[in-house]
Design a protein around this nucleic acid. Structure first.
Length: 855
RNA sequence: GCCCGAGUGGCGGAAUUGGCAGACGCGGAGGUCUCAAAAACCUUUGUCGAAAGACGUGUGGGUUCGAGUCCCACCUCGGGCACCA
């Protein structure tokens, strides 16, 4: 490449992206330009992008994610904030194991090589990270503190081991958390998990269910859909537990044995015509054992085991059930209800037992229809013929109803004893009355259920953070003493030869910290989401070797002010991180309740046809293919300009070419302005001349727009404001001979253009700041320009004149004209239209329009 | 079924509180420069119409002097949850 001094055209250096970009990347690195200073007295701003999984080089999605964050971080610096903008790697996980096997290498080697490549690409993109704070979750100095946190949670009873049915992914050979089963499939590989009864390790996230739900309301800076997804996932429902007595063999005599149900509709208790247990229920097995019903039950149970969880979901599936021959007694009516075992009942929701109300529940209705069970109506609208007939207790009867009569609509109780006539439905008076009634008799109580389950964190995999526990035959599960942390993962396992952590004696053979006898380490590792649940805290104090982070450092930087990442983490990572933060708070390590104040979920980058980019489809556009021919600044500009950050966009080479055209044009315009620019000249707005005054006014108008657009992270319109200013400056240069241009104006406009585009095109900005404007230091030490709303006002404004809301004329009036003056001009402009009509009303909206109402 | 979003030119998209719909860019058309091309620059570009003008933000109503924006009903698309009792 020719150097700038030689390659000039009309006195303007050729824009040589590659030369400029490598030059400034070196300068920034040398000068520590983007180091977050602990001792700065500027206000802090913590800008964070979700760190990548290092499965190879960065792709377009990463480029978009980090470009958004970098523009925010750089602009915040110019706005006077001390900015923490760190980066790291979520480095544990299964892909590293698979790659190690495939390439006959070690998971660690592969991971570190990928991280090195990714850092090179980040630097080539000009991302302003404080690289001294780089965190890699597979470094023992990091994962040690994940183990430390696990032990703290163990002490507080927040970590525990339990045996229960879990989702086992046969292809990943490990269990999965509930959150990692997406659409009934493994989130990573898409296989359908099997249910297995296994002893596994959990974190008690359910203890925080209510707070995780409540605090969503505080997160005003989060997108509504993310909050809605979390609310759905937590799935709070209010209702009651009601105790039904198991009847003796005769079917009518209550025994002492109680079976409790959970229901959100206690007001429908009079409509119970059967009782339901899931096939997995031990009670179900017990009730049918040795009876004529046992055989049918076993068939049902087996069929459920064979059907995958995907097929079992979905309301299209036909319901199956088996009668047990036994009954329960309705605590309200004293009437017996037959106990059925049904395959649509879930063991792990509520109490694992359900009262069947066919006139109130679609599923129960279908079930009753199929097995010919009674469908007693218990709720009706007042305009329903049934209501008149059945509101009178004397007409009480059991009759089958159609689904039309079901009480999903608002309605009043019928055939419901003393509660007949009360308004029913969720949170209705009837609900409260019946709960009170049951409560007085000690057979029911108000309760809340959550859909959220505890977080299953153990994984039967090698490349993860070992669970710091030891199993001793004498003492049970014993925590590894803090002074022995970290439990180090062996780096040299030969996965290709089939070695696993569970079989690695060197790793698991140990002695019990309690009794000193030989014992075995837990060979499960923690879910990688444990590593990503607190990395943002570690960035505040990444080299601390006595604590995960100091209180002082998290007080300084947390919470994250702007968090940017993909919507796919709406539940998984964002829910886990909120939980972890609350646990750290309750351990006294931090004071905040929520980790992320503002959240931006960027859209996906798809190919030109709108298909997701993937290696298997062969439609991936690597960032290097754009950086090479156009440069990082063009790529950053194109990514931010093509669409609003939250929206998906389709990759379009034309947009990149357009961005490159603009960046070169802006380059020429700034150089053109610089020919007459004088940094020391004083600007006198009154002596600028017509063209100059208008350019000056537009600079303020567009500067205000650009600034507010940065504030609301709307980069596409922020860029269009700069484009307009460049267009105006270009017009000024074309219309005004050099000797008539104002030196102060040309300087301030050039500096403004450079400043406003610098967060987005940083190398371009630095180069012009120094070479064209002759400034010293970094453009990021320069303050963001201030704009004056008064200076943005024009002397005269054009108003639309409407007749009955339709634009009929345009008038020019002085900006400070009174309403009366404006009205007079407007009437004159519309004189021909309003001849012979009566003007009823004239609305004057200053600066905008006049509307004359006449007929 | 429940819960969130979103529907604007040929395309990506603008339009802070109800106030000139289509900013900015892409693409298209025409032009300047050039032997020619590229690059660059200029003009033009919602639809219909020669023009005046009319129509125009998913559909149908409504509120208002005035609606892309507010209200009601609906349609379509995207996303989440779901035999959750």
């Amino acid at each position: 490449m020719a150097n700038n001094a030689e390659a000039r055209r009309d006195g303007v250096p050729i824009y040589d992206a590659e030369a400029i970009e490598t030059k400034w990347q070196d300068v920034w690195e040398k000068n520590d330009t983007f180091k977050a200073r602990e001792d700065s007295d500027r206000p802090k701003k913590y800008v964070l992008e979700m760190f990548p999984y290092p499965s190879g080089d960065l792709h377009m999605g990463h480029a978009r994610n980090y470009t958004i964050g970098d523009a925010m971080a750089r602009q915040a610096r110019m706005r006077g904030f001390e900015v923490l903008h760190p980066m790291g790697f979520d480095a544990f996980g299964l892909p590293a194991e698979n790659a190690a096997i495939k390439n006959n290498t070690q998971a660690g080697k592969w991971t570190y090589a990928n991280m090195d490549q990714a850092v090179r690409t980040m630097k080539r993109m000009g991302f302003s990270y404080d690289y001294e704070r780089l965190v890699r979750t597979c470094d023992p100095e990091y994962y040690k503190w994940g183990q430390w946190a696990f032990l703290k949670m163990w002490e507080k009873g927040l970590a525990y081991r339990a045996t229960s049915p879990v989702n086992w992914c046969p292809s990943c050979n490990t269990v999965l958390a509930n959150e990692q089963v997406v659409d009934g499939k493994c989130w990573r590989c898409g296989s359908v998990p099997e249910k297995r009864e296994l002893s596994q390790w959990y974190l008690r996230i359910t203890q925080y269910a209510q707070e995780l739900l409540d605090d969503l309301d505080k997160l005003e800076g989060w997108p509504e859909n993310v909050k809605a997804q979390q609310r759905n996932w937590i799935g709070r429902s209010e209702g009651a537990e009601i105790d039904f007595a198991l009847a003796a063999e005769d079917g009518v005599t209550p025994t002492d044995r109680l079976i409790t149900v959970f229901t959100t509709r206690p007001d429908t208790l009079y409509g119970v015509s059967f009782f339901l247990l899931p096939p997995e229920s031990p009670l179900a097995a017990e009730l049918v054992a040795g009876t004529e019903h046992e055989e049918a039950y076993l068939v049902l149970k087996k069929s459920v085991e064979q059907v995958s969880s995907v097929d079992r979901q979905g309301s299209e599936r036909e319901k199956h059930g088996v009668f047990t021959g036994r009954y329960v007694i309705n605590p309200l009516t004293g009437t017996p209800a037959p106990i059925w075992i049904a395959d649509y009942i879930l063991l792990d929701y509520g109490t694992g037992a359900v009262m069947g109300v066919p006139s109130g529940d679609q599923s129960d209705f279908e079930f009753a229809r199929k097995y010919d069970l009674p469908i007693p109506p218990i709720i009706a609208r007042q305009d329903d013929p049934l209501y008149d007939e059945l509101k009178d207790e004397r007409n009480m009867r059991v009759t089958n109803v159609d689904w039309d009569h079901a009480m999903d609509a608002e309605g009043y109780l019928i055939q419901s004893g003393p509660f007949t006539g009360m308004l029913g439905g969720k949170h209705s008076p009837a609900v409260d009355a019946i709960i009170d009634y049951l409560g007085e008799r000690g057979v029911g109580r108000k309760t809340v259920q959550f859909r959220l389950r505890d977080w299953l964190i153990s994984r039967q995999r090698y490349w993860g953070n070992p669970i710091p526990m030891i199993h001793c035959d004498e003492c049970g599960d014993v925590p590894v003493p803090y002074e022995d942390l970290p439990v180090t993962l062996p780096e040299d396992l030969d996965l290709g030869a089939g070695e696993t952590l569970a079989e690695c004696e060197e790793f698991y053979a140990t002695t019990c910290p309690k009794c000193g006898k030989p014992a075995k380490r837990i060979t499960d590792t923690m879910d990688t989401f444990t590593c990503s649940s607190w990395y943002f805290l570690r960035y505040c104090d990444p080299h601390n070797d006595s604590m995960p982070f100091s209180k002082e450092s998290v007080d300084r930087w947390m919470p994250v002010d702007n968090y940017i990442g993909g919507i796919e983490h709406a539940i998984l990572h964002l829910l886990y991180s909120r939980f972890w933060t609350k646990v750290m708070r309750d351990l006294g390590l931090i004071d905040i309740d929520e980790p992320f104040t503002n959240l931006l979920c960027q859209g996906m980058v798809k190919d030109a046809n709108g298909d997701t980019m993937s290696k298997s489809k062969g439609n991936v556009v690597p960032p290097s293919s754009v950086i090479g021919p156009y440069g990082a600044d063009t790529m950053r500009l194109a990514i931010l300009f093509i669409a609003p950050s939250e929206k998906d966009f389709n990759w379009d080479e034309e947009v990149v070419a357009g961005a490159n055209r603009f960046i070169k044009r802006a380059w020429r315009v700034v150089w053109g302005l610089s020919q007459t620019a004088d940094a020391n000249a004083k600007l006198e707005p009154k002596s600028l001349g017509k063209a100059g005054a208008e350019l000056y006014r537009r600079m303020h108008e567009l500067g205000i727009r650009c600034t507010t657009d940065f504030d609301r992270a709307q980069f596409n319109t922020a860029i269009s404001a700069v484009m307009e200013l460049v267009n105006d400056a270009s017009a000024y240069l074309n219309s005004t001979p050099a000797e008539q241009r104002d030196p102060a104006l040309t300087f301030v406009v050039a500096r403004t253009i450079v400043a406003m585009l610098s967060p987005i095109c940083p190398h371009w900005g630095e180069e012009l700041y120094h070479e064209a404007l002759g400034m010293e230091g970094s453009v990021y030490e320069e303050a963001w320009p201030t704009f004056d709303a008064n200076a943005a006002k024009a002397d005269t404004v054009q108003l639309a004149v409407q007749l009955m809301g339709k634009v009929r004329a345009r008038i020019d009036v002085a900006a400070d004209a009174t309403k009366d003056e404006i009205e007079a001009v407007a009437r004159e402009a519309l004189a021909a239209h309003i001849v012979g009509k009566t003007v009823r009303k004239v609305i004057v909206v200053p600066g905008r329009l006049v509307n004359i109402v006449a007929n």
